[in-house]
Design a protein around this nucleic acid. Structure first.
Length: 584
RNA sequence: GCCCCGGUAGCUCAGUUGGAUAGAGCGCACCCCUCCUAAGGGUGAGGUCACAGGUUCAACUCCUGUCCGGGGCGCCA
């Protein structure tokens, strides 16, 4: 509906004044829903915006524009109001037409072609496979999955990707942590390194290694520890763990170390995949950093930067001249010890995304990655790619509460709450919806008690209940030996004149606009708030009026409306990854 | 010190890219089931949109500065 009005406006402006119509504002006139019903159904401020360029006062200009509007059966009348707004009052037929559209398009209603099939890569979660997903990753998963769904719904060609950091020092640390636990389980008295991963899951990794390798990789504690530098607190934990990794490779051989690493990695990845799968989060591709490395892409990227004079050597390391591309300092790409940094592979990875012809690269990252944005963009720019093609969305942190009691969390400590634990406690539906209730740039307080409560304080049930309520009405209808007659209902929508019916119609037909807003603002929470509003419109209507009445015209018109509401609720919940139950 | 995000009702938060009288939930005070699920609906009280300037016909929204809160600034990832 909104689009049609905007087209009418554009036509009016073109007919009125060709030079005026050429201005940027006139080319894309905007129409908005009126907040106050007295201001009609839609309103535009175009006359106010163009008044200066037209050398006219806004109200007079509004008059001329309104007069130039091509006649349209959907528009009952227009009115000039306030400082120069043009208010549109729609004909009842406009809502009737839109309601028929909901019934006709069903699960496709709300889907548009706004995105023009532009190729978008949404990379999200990408948690390091060195431990199970925690509640922060859960928010990124819910956000990324839903954003991708919404972008796809409004016509973007979306690919969902998870980048696996399965190369480099970090996974070596995972491997050596698992090996140390393995040695302990074999009865060797080796101290666990300060910088190792100390979660319980590492014990499981040790058990997996033992099942695969028996005691073949057991080495005496004395030979493991001989001549190593001191661990923290006396020594440097970073130096210590690197030395320990070197020792492990020497003692069991590079090949065996590789097998340990591979077993640990596969177990972690299987856990992460299963967790996300159960959470309803799916990826089109799991992109391995290790595979990127093997393909030579990182070497090629570095060679290209070298050729273009973007690299220099200092203090034994190789630096990328990031400051030449807007970053605040230059960045190391190859360390003094010859190891490439993660940043080097990030450059290659993002370049490779562009080579796969994605017009827009969206990275969904934790808020702690803020410093990373400028440098990856600098890398992309240095490669001759437009910096704007990269869009980084930072997700603020999650705090868990039990009532008003904050639950302590720490990533490296043994005690942290995993996504799996959270899902088990509150359920997937509440989990997805609670993660999405707030804007991504807002820290999230997640109250476990509230998420579990089956009261009206809990928005999950509120929305789902509205959906189930309509299903219940239909069951009741069948129980009374009646059936919904769609054609009759849609033919008599003019009977839906009550205040609650008008409100429900206005709300349910907003869905396509909400999806566009949510997509363009990267704001899934707008969809959540909308669904709450729609559920409220349904509950209010339900309490005020009876749907199953004897007059079949009225009955079917009302049912057409509530079934339309149910359809939109279902479409919205599906995008959020929340179930739409038939009964509760 | 520099950078990012936030500051809106007692609490938790929305606010349609600058519009008309700033909204919702919870909490508080009331009211509504012989009726399609009360996991629901309705009414009321509650605001200096952190503060000060600026831009504009119009500012919660944009710009500058100040104050407060959170986060980030390693040859870590």
């Amino acid at each position: 509906m909104k689009q049609q009005l905007e087209q009418l406006l554009a036509a009016a402006l073109a007919a009125l004044d060709s030079t005026l119509a050429a201005t940027a504002e006139a080319r894309a006139p905007t129409v908005e829903r009126s907040r106050d019903p007295r201001h009609g159904d839609f309103a535009t401020n175009i006359a106010l915006r163009l008044a200066k360029a037209a050398h006219s006062n806004p109200r007079a200009l509004a008059q001329r524009i309104a007069a130039a509007l091509p006649p349209n059966p959907l528009v009952l009348r227009t009115e000039i109001a306030g400082a120069g707004f043009i208010n549109f009052f729609l004909a009842p037929a406009a809502y009737a037409h839109e309601l028929a559209e909901i019934h006709a398009r069903a699960e496709r209603y709300g889907h548009t072609s706004l995105g023009r099939a532009e190729r978008v890569l949404v990379e999200f979660v990408s948690a390091n496979p060195t431990g199970p997903l925690h509640v922060g990753h859960g928010r990124q998963a819910a956000y990324g999955a839903t954003l991708a769904n919404i972008l796809a719904a409004v016509g973007f060609d979306v690919t969902r990707e998870y980048y696996i950091n399965d190369a480099g020092r970090q996974v070596d640390i995972l491997a050596v942590s698992a090996w140390m636990r393995y040695l302990q389980s074999c009865g060797e008295a080796v101290p666990f390194p300060e910088n190792g991963y100390r979660g319980d899951y590492v014990q499981n990794l040790a058990a997996i290694i033992r099942a695969a390798e028996g005691e073949d990789l057991r080495r005496p504690a004395a030979s493991v520890l001989a001549g190593l530098p001191a661990d923290a607190p006396a020594g440097d934990k970073e130096v210590y763990i690197d030395a320990l990794i070197g020792r492990a490779r020497d003692l069991i051989g590079r090949e065996a170390f590789r097998r340990v690493l591979q077993l640990a990695l596969e177990a972690m990845l299987a856990d992460i995949r299963e967790d996300l799968e159960q959470f309803g989060v799916r990826f089109d591709r799991w992109y391995s950093e290790h595979a990127l490395e093997r393909s030579g892409a990182i070497e090629r990227a570095l060679a290209r930067l070298e050729r273009d004079g973007r690299l220099y050597r200092a203090e034994g390391a190789v630096w990328f001249r990031a400051t030449a591309f807007g970053d605040e300092k230059d960045r190391v790409v190859v360390r003094e010890n010859g190891q490439k940094t993660y940043f080097a592979s990030d450059i290659a990875y993002h370049l490779e995304k562009r080579e796969r012809r994605f017009a827009r690269l969206i990275d969904v990252l934790g808020a702690d990655h803020h410093g990373y944005v400028a440098r990856v963009r600098a890398g992309l720019t240095a490669m001759g790619e437009p910096g704007e093609s990269l869009e980084v969305i930072l997700i603020q942190f999650v705090s868990l509460f039990r009532g008003d009691q904050k639950i302590p969390m720490g990533k490296r400590e043994a005690q942290f709450v995993t996504l799996r634990q959270l899902r088990a406690e509150v359920g997937n539906d509440a989990c997805r919806l609670f993660y999405l209730m707030r804007g991504h740039d807002q820290p999230l307080d997640f109250d476990l008690e509230l998420a579990k409560s089956r009261t009206n304080e809990n928005p999950v049930y509120y929305i789902q209940y509205a959906h189930a309520r309509v299903a219940s009405v239909l069951k009741q209808l069948a129980a009374r030996g009646l059936a919904f007659e769609r054609a009759e209902g849609l033919a008599h929508t003019a009977l839906l004149t009550g205040a609650h019916e008008q409100a429900a119609l206005a709300c349910v037909t907003r869905f396509p606009e909400v999806l566009e807003q949510a997509a363009m603002n990267r704001a899934p929470h707008m969809l959540v708030h909308y669904l709450r509003d729609l559920a409220n419109a349904l509950h209010t209507y339900y309490n005020a009026d009876t749907f199953i009445v004897t007059d079949s015209k009225v009955r079917n018109a009302r049912l057409a409306l509530v079934i339309g509401v149910q359809q939109v609720l279902r479409n919205g919940l599906t995008l959020l990854g929340v179930s739409a139950p038939e009964s509760m």
